[in-house]
């Protein structure tokens, strides 16, 4: 007997089976991104205020630009202005709020229906964050354009290499920050104040990430210690890449990867322990 069409027919399902998980992931990604993008765009006024509330680096920009004019620091005012504008940008792209949403879901029992779905609930939060970046983008572009209109001396265009590298660094920094906050969020299985942990962590992040000053102005020993923590890689590292200042790229990427692994392990362990603990209150 001959089956002339059988070999290709057999091959096609094989390929389809092999591709199926990939296709499924792609579909989920596309659907979640578009759904959450639609959600986010609905609250444009709110989004604008969110963008504006990130003015913290701009305050420090002014004060450091003034200080740099005295010539007592190792940088000139234009570099400082560019640095803090980059800090502003990096912050805009790495804002994370998953702990507040997750805590509410656990306390109100809203997590239960999500647990029944065949997708880990984390992806919901992750994609809502990612699509919010896109909804925020027009405001950021406008603000940056306004900034350069007011202060044209600071205008610069990063080289292609720097732009690509800093885009990668910003994405990695976002992932690490998301992972850290999601790990703290999992504490809400045990306590109703998981946000307090995050707020305390955020405090340290504010002062050690390079948001208030470039790490290079820290005292020597302080610098050495801080570079072992995850904080400078969340802001200082991508920001210096963006303005084209010399930085140790390999070390930066390795540090982000290392801290991500630590938090990933902790995160998965807490998730398994937490689900045993979770009682689905109110649901």
């Amino acid at each position: 007997m001959s089956y002339p069409t059988s070999p290709p027919a057999r091959r096609r399902p094989k390929l389809a089976i092999a591709l199926k998980p990939v296709l499924r992931v792609l579909t989920i990604t596309r659907v979640m991104l578009s759904v959450y993008y639609a959600y986010m765009v609905e609250y444009r006024a709110e989004l604008l205020f969110w963008v504006l509330s990130g003015t913290f680096p701009l305050i420090f920009m002014g004060i450091w630009a003034q200080a740099a004019q005295s010539g007592q620091f190792a940088f000139d005012s234009v570099t400082v202005v560019r640095y803090f504008l980059s800090v502003f940008l990096v912050r805009q792209f790495t804002v994370v709020w998953v702990v507040w949403e997750f805590e509410r879901e656990v306390v109100e029992g809203k997590l239960s229906p999500y647990l029944l779905q065949p997708v880990d609930p984390v992806w919901r939060h992750f994609f809502s964050h990612v699509s919010e970046r896109f909804a925020r983008l027009p405001f950021i572009v406008l603000l940056v354009a306004l900034f350069f209109a007011l202060y044209p001396q600071a205008f610069w265009v990063p080289s292609w290499g720097d732009a690509v590298l800093s885009a990668i660094a910003i994405s990695l920094a976002f992932c690490l920050r998301f992972l850290m906050q999601y790990t703290f969020a999992l504490l809400s299985f045990w306590t109703e104040r998981a946000t307090a942990v995050e707020q305390f962590w955020y405090l340290i992040y504010t002062f050690l990430s390079g948001m208030i000053a470039p790490i290079t102005v820290f005292p020597e020993t302080m610098q050495a210690i801080v570079l072992w923590t995850p904080f400078p890689y969340l802001i200082y590292f991508p920001a210096t890449l963006l303005i084209g200042e010399p930085t140790d790229i390999v070390k930066g990427i390795l540090a982000i990867a290392g801290w991500s692994l630590i938090f990933l392990a902790l995160n998965r362990w807490l998730w398994r322990q937490g689900l045993k603990q979770y009682s689905g209150m109110g649901a």
């Binding site: 709110e46 509330s53 003015t55 003034q66």
Partner: peptide, 21 residues
């Protein structure tokens, strides 16, 4: 978020105003 914006601007108060451009 409006109050967040105000809070962000108030952060400028931690230094004497003479420190700014």
């Amino acid at each position: 978020n409006v109050t967040e914006v105000l809070r962000g601007l108030l952060d400028a108060g931690r230094f004497p105003i003479a420190a700014y451009p």
